[in-house]
Design a protein around this nucleic acid. Structure first.
Length: 323
DNA sequence: GCGACAG
DNA sequence: ATCTTGTCGC
């Protein structure tokens, strides 16, 4: 991974941004997200502030909502108000007085998310799909379960002909990078590479819990993993990140194209007896749209294909056992 | 109030 | 993804 050190220092970088807000001023979740490099990170900003390890040093009470209202605080809004007023910021009815005047936006930042986005834009040129035969013999499914900073990635390897699990592994890895929509790979790739290295058999294709090219920049987690490992990958998401479903999916019509800006980015697939909503299938790397859909459907006894489902169960069990 | 963006 | 009692439907 090209920007591994940036990923590892992301959280600390964020806390030092928060520390730039001077006494007597406030800033917003959105402003901090933009200073990180993407307004998509606003909720992650809230999450990281909530997990602030040093409240005495990092002034998270100076971060409020973009409409000027207080926003949340671990020790209560009253406490947040008290801290702000002690610093000379007036608060009335959970709202900052003279919000425009005290709002701080002048962050000094190298915008790490812009760097990560650039990595995605460079990588997307290398994604290939359409040149495979679909003749994969060993299929893997991967997933990650979390407990705060700990990730439990799991892999389940299957014999395609016998339709049975051959091997399965779970590992434990520390993660620091938060979940930010469209940046999932930077959170999940390190744990997945770790558990993938455990497998005795190298899989011919990996099904990933997340998107492939069904992504605003055609560079989802599955594609990133495929490029990183040179192994063919298929993305399988349980909800839609982007694109337009072209037709309704139901028991009569189980597959629909998903398009973005007119071009095909994946398919919505409804399988499994009790499934109410479809899953979203897209090529990660070195797999065609058609073979991606066929492979996933072949393993869809339930809504989610068995190898991913097994990996999910394994990872979750291990996490709960550890707690 | 609506819309809502993988895990 | 995780936090989690109760409720609904097959």
């Amino acid at each position: 991974m090209e920007n591994l050190s940036l990923i590892r220092s992301f959280r600390e970088k964020f806390y030092s941004l928060v520390s730039q807000i001077p006494e007597g001023r406030v800033s917003t979740y959105g402003e901090l997200a933009r200073s990180l490099g993407s307004n998509r990170a606003a909720r992650a900003v809230g999450k990281m502030l909530n997990e602030n390890p040093r409240p005495e040093v990092v002034p998270c009470h100076r971060v409020v909502k973009s409409d000027g209202t207080l926003g949340g605080y671990d020790r209560g809004k009253e406490e947040k108000k008290k801290l702000l007023e002690k610093e000379g910021v007036s608060v009335e009815d959970e709202e900052i007085v003279n919000f425009e005047e005290v709002l701080f936006t002048d962050f000094q930042s190298d915008k790490p998310l812009e760097t990560l986005r650039e990595e995605q834009m460079e990588l997307k040129e290398k994604v290939s799909f359409g040149d495979d035969e679909g003749d994969f013999a060993t299929i893997a499914g991967v997933d990650v379960s979390y407990s705060e900073q700990r990730a439990y990635p799991a892999i389940s390897l299957w014999d395609r002909k016998k339709k049975e699990e051959k091997e399965a592994y779970v590992t434990k890895v520390e993660v620091d990078f938060p979940y930010i929509p469209t940046f999932l790979a930077f959170r999940e790739l390190p744990p997945l590479l770790d558990v993938l290295s455990e497998a005795e058999t190298k899989p011919d294709v990996v099904m990933v819990d997340g998107n492939g090219v069904m992504h605003p920049h055609e560079m989802g987690l599955a594609s990133h993993l495929g490029l990183e490992t040179k192994i063919p990958t298929v993305g399988v998401a349980k909800s839609k990140l982007c694109g337009k479903i072209m037709e309704d999916v139901d028991k009569q019509n189980r597959v629909s194209e998903v398009r973005k800006d007119g071009s095909l980015i994946g398919h919505a697939v409804l399988e499994g007896e009790r499934a109410k909503n479809p899953i979203y299938v897209s090529p990660g790397h070195k797999v065609s749209h058609e073979n991606a859909v066929d492979l996933v459907r072949e393993f869809c006894q339930y809504k989610v294909p068995d190898p991913i489902r097994r990996a999910h169960i394994k990872a979750t069990k291990r996490r709960k056992k550890d707690e």
